[in-house]
């Protein structure tokens, strides 16, 4: 028994070392910008960089539009499938899992070839069009997470009985959706949204290939041109990921239904 404990703690200690050292290293490095003394210079430089604000702002707006688009696509579908046509659920589930199977870079490749200026749908021809394509691409990448979160949330509350109960009391469709369904799966929706946010905010491949000024490409550009600022960016980015994940954990614990994402 004591032997087992000992090994568990050893494994834990080694894992903690491996996972914490890069974080410590990243933090320490980001403070080294001034020669011979720790300082917040790297952060100051980053925060004073107009491009930082532009790209982060762009990515924030992008991630919010992605969340909205993803919700508009996924939530009504998951609800409708469960309520009216449960037999096509395996198909819908399969499609939502595809983005895990097809690497993002391949999807981006397909977009560029299919929606270029000479195609029927020349989305990459204008900046607005490309933004739209990028948003759609991110919504696609987040399909597996968004669908699973919402589907689990819907299943936890037996949506069919609730809907029928509301209808038997005289509620119309809009009332059912806004007063019964949404409040009951709000935790699931928020979890899916934060996860999407975490994925989108620092994404590189899609943004770089579609050539949009997002936070990911900005970080890479900094990486090849500056020494200490990238570490500061990594700290900021890690903080954002943590915040999103902590929000999910918090919601999952506080919510009435625990939602697995």
């Amino acid at each position: 028994m004591i032997g087992k404990r000992f090994w568990s703690w050893t494994i834990f200690a080694l894992a903690a070392l491996y996972f914490l050292l890069p974080l410590v290293g990243m933090l320490e490095f980001s403070l080294r910008a001034r020669r011979g003394a720790y300082s917040l210079d790297a952060y100051r430089n980053v925060l004073n960089d107009a491009q930082f604000h532009q790209t982060l702002g762009y990515s924030l707006i992008l991630s919010m539009s992605t969340v909205v688009l993803g919700l508009l696509i996924v939530a009504p579908t998951a609800f409708w499938v469960q309520l009216k046509i449960p037999r096509i659920r395996p198909l819908v589930e399969f499609i939502t899992l595809l983005p895990l199977v097809i690497p993002p870079i391949v999807i981006a490749f397909g977009y560029i070839r299919l929606y270029n200026t000479s195609s029927v749908l020349p989305l990459t021809g204008s900046a607005r069009g490309t933004d739209l394509l990028l948003t759609a691409g991110y919504a696609t990448l987040s399909l597996p997470y968004m669908y699973r979160a919402i589907d689990t949330g819907l299943r936890a509350i037996d949506i069919r009985t609730l809907t029928e109960a509301a209808q038997s009391l005289g509620a119309g469709w809009m009332t059912v959706l806004t007063r019964v369904v949404l409040p009951n799966i709000s935790v699931a929706i928020l979890s899916g949204s934060f996860l999407t946010f975490a994925i989108v905010i620092g994404e590189y491949v899609l943004a770089a290939l579609l050539d949009r000024p997002a936070f990911g490409p900005y970080m890479v550009w900094m990486g090849s041109n500056r020494a200490y600022e990238p570490a500061a960016l990594a700290v900021i980015s890690f903080g954002l990921t943590w915040a999103a994940m902590a929000a999910i954990q918090f919601l999952a614990r506080r919510g009435h239904h625990s939602v697995k994402v």
């Binding site: 996972f19 890069p22 320490e28 994404e203 970080m219 990486g223 570490a231 990594a234 890690f238 990921t241």
Partner: peptide, 28 residues
């Protein structure tokens, strides 16, 4: 909880963290 965060902490920032730690001028 940490696994949930770290499995999503891939990409560019992760690379920076490793450069800051094990690069030629890294922490370690």
């Amino acid at each position: 909880t940490f696994s949930g965060v770290a499995s999503n902490f891939a990409g560019v920032p992760l690379a920076f963290a490793f450069i800051a730690t094990l690069g030629r001028l890294g922490f370690i």
